[in-house]
Amino acid sequence: MKIDDIRRSYTKDKLDADNLAADPIVQFEQWLKDAIAAELPDPTAMCVATVDASGQPSQRLVLLKDVNSSGFTFYTNLGSRKASELAVNPKVSLHFPWHPLERQVIVYGTAERVPSSQVVKYFLSRPKESQLAAWASEQSRPISTRHALMQKFAEIKHKFAHGEVPLPSFWGGFLVKPSKIEFWQGGEHRLHDRFMYQRQADGSWQIERLCP
């Protein structure tokens, strides 16, 4: 198989300045609704890119759990690689790859911890098995076998067999406050439509069309 021969045309839609919302969060929410309505697998999945102290970037897929005028929220183990890297460098990028719609959204911003009250509220809304998994997994740490992981899960399940599963002290959330948000719509002949929103000092947003 020659991978350099794999290509296709992008013809599903166009993106024009006249059709853009003045606020990128409003524009994002509309595109997210479109992704959900199209029944895309995991429409809230986003690639979170962070950078460690040496400058080495890393990426992983995480589920978006809230979006509002303040920004984009996700939750994680605070001992994970992404959380450790954000503690050193809070600059972060999010990427939403809605390929079937020939759309992408890229968010640039900084991450900050969300209040513990918000973390508790979300954690208690999760299925119990997911709550137990948060206790069982020392995210990003080496583990000998999957059997060892499942054994730890069974122990935690037995420990919290009755009553609520409490919030682990090592589990929390991050709010990504955007400084720039790019919307990408695939176009014919690789002449894609790209618009960048950039936050201004007064809190307003400047919109520019970018070359594809």
Rank of each mutant, 00 (worst) to 15 (best):
E188M: 09
R194P: 07
R199W: 03
R194D: 07
G172F: 04
E188G: 11
L191T: 05
R190N: 13
S169R: 05
G172H: 11
R194M: 08
G163F: 03
R199S: 10
G163I: 01
E188Q: 12
A161C: 01
V176N: 03
S204T: 15
R199L: 13
R194V: 11
A201S: 14
V176C: 03
Q198K: 14
F170I: 03
G172E: 02
I181S: 06
I181N: 07
S169W: 00
L167W: 00
E188A: 13
A201M: 00
F170E: 00
F170G: 03
S169L: 07
F160T: 10
K177T: 15
W171G: 10
A201I: 08
G187F: 13
A161L: 11
W184N: 04
H162R: 07
G172I: 02
R190L: 13
M196R: 15
G203Q: 10
F160I: 09
W184Y: 12
F174M: 04
L167N: 03
Q185F: 12
P178D: 05
V176T: 05
P166R: 06
S169D: 13
P166F: 02
M196T: 15
Q198P: 00
E188W: 00
F183M: 05
G173T: 05
F174D: 07
H192L: 03
G186S: 05
W184R: 04
Q200K: 15
G186Q: 01
S179N: 14
Q198V: 14
G173K: 07
D202E: 11
G172T: 09
I181C: 06
F160W: 14
V165C: 03
P178R: 02
V165N: 03
S179W: 07
G187P: 13
G163K: 09
P178L: 11
H192A: 03
E182H: 10
M196P: 02
W205P: 12
A161V: 04
L191C: 06
D202F: 01
F170W: 12
K180S: 15
P166W: 06
Q198C: 09
E188L: 13
G163N: 07
G173Q: 10
P166G: 01
V176W: 00
Q185Y: 13
S169H: 10
E164S: 14
G203E: 00
I181D: 08
P168Y: 06
K177N: 14
D202M: 01
P168R: 01
H162F: 01
S169Q: 10
E188F: 01
L191E: 10
Q185W: 12
V165P: 00
K177F: 04
F195R: 10
G173P: 12
M196G: 01
S204K: 14
E182T: 08
G203V: 03
G163L: 02
H162T: 13
H189E: 12
G173E: 10
G173M: 09
F170L: 04
W205V: 04
Q198E: 15
